[in-house]
Design a protein around this nucleic acid. Structure first.
Length: 332
DNA sequence: AATAAAGGCAACCGCAGATGG
DNA sequence: GCCATCTGCGGTTGCCTTTAT
């Protein structure tokens, strides 16, 4: 005995909406509003489920929606808010006028997550991978560390394998070129060298993070480490040394040019996304050991701001929703 | 030019909270 | 308080487009 379906599944059309259907729905809603979604398709002459109509309206037809590319400022806002509230897409979207939760979610899953991974930052915790490695190393007995570190770095590990495999192929090609007497033109481009350099740095930091658990002090605000070996992102030159406290500054978000850490070259989609999709609403713990629940459990927005394991560099004036603003201002 | 792989996005699914009788 | 229904949300899927080989 489940609950009754929201509509007769046999009689409803599914899949892509046609312009004609869009017109019907838009003009009906313009006249009658959006009360009672179940009745809307029937009254509007649509063979659609009410839920489908609601989705179409909220995610596509609403006149106040923006349809273009996300701006750098919007991306920054998404990343910052995600570091605070996690996958609460509706909360994040509420801070971005004209954007829907679906927009934000899709943009995060297809672009931002990869960009962060490419910068050496875990998109779930928003911490540098090396920092996570150090945390793991301090809390576990040595035999466990390697395995858990591997698991924690699932995305990045795959990328490293990719890079290292490519390096090996490049090496063979270079050797074969050399054997043919072609010694003047290096096979590997400067960008490839950059990648290989990155791979080496990551390898070094990975092993150091495991071997030297106190490399990064815990319970301390992240610092921009510049070229400090402990921070992979810093080692890649992502974060400006002048920045006080770890943050996603314009320098890391605004430059999409050649060699930018934002280029998709750093992380392939399948390897990056698999580990994070379908994340259950598990019990999680913050850095103080306080238990909280992932997913929808947080109902009071102010609670979201009560943990120290998040980034606090969001200017409160940037927050459109007064709930956020108040929570932010009362955080002390 | 053809094909495969990856990316991007719209839409669907199912769960949970809100609401009203 | 209970139940039925509506609504909102986050996760997932599937299809179309773009890019790489």
């Amino acid at each position: 005995m489940g609950r009754i379906p929201c509509c007769e599944k046999d009689n409803v059309k599914r899949g892509q909406w046609t312009p004609e259907e869009d017109n019907k729905l838009s003009s009906y809603i313009a006249q009658h509003g959006t009360r009672n979604w179940r009745l809307i398709p029937k009254n509007a002459g649509l063979q659609r489920c009410g839920k489908s109509c609601r989705l179409r309206w909220t995610n596509y037809l609403r006149p106040d929606l923006k349809h273009g590319q996300f701006s750098v400022a919007e991306e920054q806002t998404i990343v910052k808010l995600h570091s605070v509230v996690g996958n609460r897409w509706s909360l994040i979207a509420a801070q971005l006028p004209g954007r829907t939760d679906n927009d934000v979610k899709n943009h995060w899953n297809t672009k931002l997550k990869k960009k962060l991974s490419g910068m050496g930052i875990d998109p779930v915790t928003h911490k540098p991978f090396s920092h996570l490695m150090a945390e793991i190393a301090t809390t576990l007995a040595p035999p466990q560390v390697a395995h858990l570190a591997e698991a924690a770095l699932g995305c990045f590990k795959d990328e490293m394998l990719h890079l290292l495999t490519k390096k090996r192929i490049d090496f063979h090609l270079q050797q074969s070129n050399a054997a043919k007497g072609n010694t003047t033109v290096p096979y590997v481009s400067s960008k490839e060298n950059e990648k290989d350099d990155t791979a080496e740095k990551f390898k070094l930091n990975l092993s150091r993070a495991i071997q030297e658990p106190d490399m990064l002090p815990l319970n301390k605000q992240w610092e921009s480490t510049g070229a400090t070996s402990g921070n992979f992102a810093g080692a890649c030159g992502v974060f400006p040394a002048s920045v006080t406290g770890f943050q996603y500054g314009p320098s890391s978000f605004g430059n999409e040019g050649a060699g930018s850490p934002w280029s998709q070259s750093m992380c392939t989609g399948s390897t990056c996304t698999a580990g994070y999709q379908g994340r259950p609403r598990e019990k999680l713990k913050d850095e103080n050991g306080e238990e909280y629940e992932g997913g929808k459990a947080i109902k009071n927005a102010s609670n979201i701001f009560s943990t120290d394991c998040v980034l606090w560099d969001i200017p409160s004036d940037d927050l459109i929703n007064p709930i956020y603003r108040d929570a932010f201002n009362n955080k002390e």
